Amino acid sequence: MAKETNRLNIHVGGCEFEVHVPKEKEQIYLMAAEYVDKKIDAYMDAFVRIPLPQKSMQEVLLMAMYDIALGSIETRQSLENNSILDKIKNTY
């Protein structure tokens, strides 16, 4: 049986995207869009909405994506390290 999906209109960085997501993951997708928007806004405040130096929108988006990726990788590594630590603890 196929999973039930819902159509969502996601707003990110001034653009609207239509995505089809599993019904149980709707809230996660909406939270992710909000998180990305907040990151973009933070970089816009820091590098565009000030007199100088100005950054291009592409640079702002790349900085926001890099920031998000860095946080994701740090979280994944932390979870992996905890998993390894748990295995060691359970061995002894």
Rank of each mutant, 00 (worst) to 15 (best):
M1L: 11
M1P: 10
E4G: 03
N6C: 14
R7L: 15
R7W: 09
L8D: 07
N9W: 01
I10N: 04
I10Y: 02
H11N: 07
G13I: 01
G13S: 02
G13N: 03
E16I: 03
E16V: 08
F17S: 07
E18Y: 01
V19Q: 00
H20R: 07
V21Q: 01
P22L: 04
E24Y: 04
E24W: 02
K25D: 13
K25N: 12
K25C: 07
E26Q: 08
Y29K: 02
L30F: 00
A32P: 11
A33D: 03
Y35P: 01
V36K: 05
D37K: 05
K39Q: 08
I40W: 02
I40G: 03
I40K: 00
D41N: 09
D41Y: 11
A42D: 10
M44L: 07
M44E: 08
M44F: 03
F47R: 01
F47D: 05
R49Q: 05
I50L: 04
I50G: 02
I50E: 04
L52V: 15
P53Y: 04
Q54K: 13
K55G: 08
K55C: 13
S56D: 09
S56E: 06
S56V: 14
M57P: 08
Q58T: 14
Q58M: 09
E59L: 03
E59T: 12
E59A: 13
E59V: 12
V60M: 06
V60K: 00
L62W: 04
M63F: 14
M63R: 03
A64N: 08
A64F: 12
M65F: 10
Y66W: 06
Y66R: 09
D67T: 11
I68T: 02
A69E: 09
A69C: 15
A69S: 15
A69V: 15
L70W: 10
S72T: 12
I73G: 03
E74Q: 12
T75L: 13
Q77S: 06
S78R: 09
S78Y: 09
N81T: 08
N81D: 10
S83T: 12
S83A: 07
S83K: 08
S83I: 01
I84K: 09
L85E: 04
K87A: 13
K87H: 06
K87F: 11
K87S: 11
I88W: 07
I88K: 09
T91M: 07
T91L: 09
